[in-house]
Every structure is written in structure tokens, then in C-alpha cells.
Design a protein around this nucleic acid. Structure first.
Lengths: 128, 128
DNA sequence: ATAAGGGTTCCAGTCACTGGAAGGTCAAGG
DNA sequence: CCTTGACCTTCCAGTGACTGGAACCCTTAT
């Protein structure tokens, strides 16, 4: 399989697949013409990475998860720990964004949004 | 005022203040020794920027907001438009994170988290 | 022979800083 | 006058995870 076939199969851009090889997440072989040749295991790994990234795991987390996935003697506790840590960080980020949203929503609601210069949003930013 | 005084006054790191000058958000003057000299207006602007950034506005949004702030003939509608657009993007990001959180939470709950290798999290990632 | 549509590498840019090196300036103390 | 320490300066590189683009090679069909 060439790179564009793999891109179609996994939904990942070819650029991203090359990048994942660069940083050592996958190791496709090479054909005589220098083209990357992807085995089923590579495609499988890339699909795994795509789903892990879609869940917001960092590349380093993905590396860890992939290593755990390939380690038959792993402890599920190790996987769970990575996921729980990520879950907690997602929670933190949501809380932060919600705080911003609440403040912003209040400000937006209080702004007339007309042709006059008077604006509570700017007033708030000018001295919180 | 020298840069470290301004840093204390605004809560922004000196590095960030220099960066804001680099990208043309502020224009402190210079003393004979080459040191930046900050006027009250500069400090005021930096505090404005700090609060806008804390609400998640991009630097480009901040530039726009600052320009509007300094334009006495602005229309509050223009400010409101920037804020509403940002508010909507925050909403999108929250929704995305909440989707991740829901999926992840379910996966984490279903994982025993013990010494055995069997793991529903990896199973899910391996073929979603 | 050529053109289209693959593939390759490498460099630069994104965003908003942040760290660090190398060096100039200033005020206080000996 | 000299030194020490705390300032300040500029410039370069790195962050995360790609993404765009240039320049060039390979394959297949016409």
C-alpha cells in the first residue's frame, strides 16, 4: 500500500502519516523506488493513532498507549492511568472555557451592539 | 517605569511585554541607556491586553479590540461582533471537549484498572 | 515524447509565548 | 576605583502537531 491509499483508509492526511514516521510512531518499509510501503500493521497503528488523537491524547500519550497496546503483558491500570490523567485535564480545560464563556456571555448581553461608541465590553477590559 | 515594574503592575511576564512590543501592540519609548520607558497609557494597554487574553481572545482579536478601544467613534456593534464570534468558538470548543470527555469517561469506567492486560480502552482505540 | 498524477525531501510557517546565552547599565558597598 | 548583583538589552531556538510549498523523482498512459 502506498501513502495515499493509507491516507484514504485511515482518514489521516499523507503529510501527517509522514510526520508520524518522522517522530518514530510507525516504521513503514521502503520499495525499490524509495516509496513508503505500508503493511496492515502500519495501517492498523495509524487508525489507532487517529482515534487516540481524536480523543485529544497528546502525541506522547499516543506513543505510550501504542506501546501498551503492543505489550501483551501490560497492566490495564497503566492504560487507565493515562486515560484518567487526560480526562482530568480535559475537565480542567472545560472549566476554564466555561468560566470565559460565562463572563463573555454576560458582557455580550450587556452590549447594545449599535452605532454608538459606548460599550460595556471595552469598559470591562479597560479596568477589570 | 521600567519593564519589571510594569510586569509587576500588570501581572504579565517581562518577556511577554517585549513580545507585545515586537508585534506592534505597544510602543514604549526608550531612555538614553536603551531601556524601555513605559508611560501610564502603555501600562493601561497592557492590562487591557492581559484581560482580553485571559478571556481567550487571540492576539489579532486583541489588536482589533485595542484599536476599537482607542477609536472614540467606534460602533459598539463592532466590539460585540468580535466578542460574539469568539463566544461561539468557545462554545464549539467546549462541545468538542465534552464529547471527548463523555467517550473517555465511559471507557475509563469500563476499565478494571488492575494488573491484567485486558483493557476496553485499548480495545476501543484498536477498532472504533 | 510528454503529460498527469503519484511519490520523495527539506524548509518555513503556524500561535503565543518561553528559555537561555551573551553582553550592556546601574546603584551600593568596600 | 573595583566589584557584586540586579537590572536591562538583543537574538536565537524551541514548544505541539501539524501544514503549505518548492523542487525534484517515478510510473503509467497516450
Amino acid at each position: 500500500m502506498n501513502i495515499s491509499d493509507v491516507a484514504k483508509a485511515t482518514g489521516l492526511p499523507a503529510k501527517t502519516i509522514r510526520y508520524y514516521e518522522d517522530i518514530g510512531l510507525i516504521y513503514p518499509t521502503r520499495g525499490d523506488n524509495g516509496y513508503r510501503v505500508f503493511a496492515d500493521t502500519d495501517v492498523h497503528k495509524l487508525a489507532f493513532l487517529g482515534r487516540a488523537r481524536a480523543l485529544g491524547f497528546s502525541i506522547e500519550d499516543c506513543r505510550t498507549l501504542l506501546a501498551l497496546y503492543e505489550d501483551d503483558s501490560r497492566a490495564s491500570a497503566d492504560v487507565k492511568a493515562v486515560a484518567e490523567e487526560h480526562l482530568s485535564q480535559i475537565g480542567d480545560k472545560i472549566a476554564q472555557l466555561e468560566a470565559m464563556r460565562d463572563t463573555l456571555r454576560t458582557l455580550v448581553q450587556s452590549c447594545a451592539g449599535d452605532a454608538r461608541p459606548d460599550c460595556p465590553i471595552l469598559k470591562d477590559l479597560a479596568r477589570g
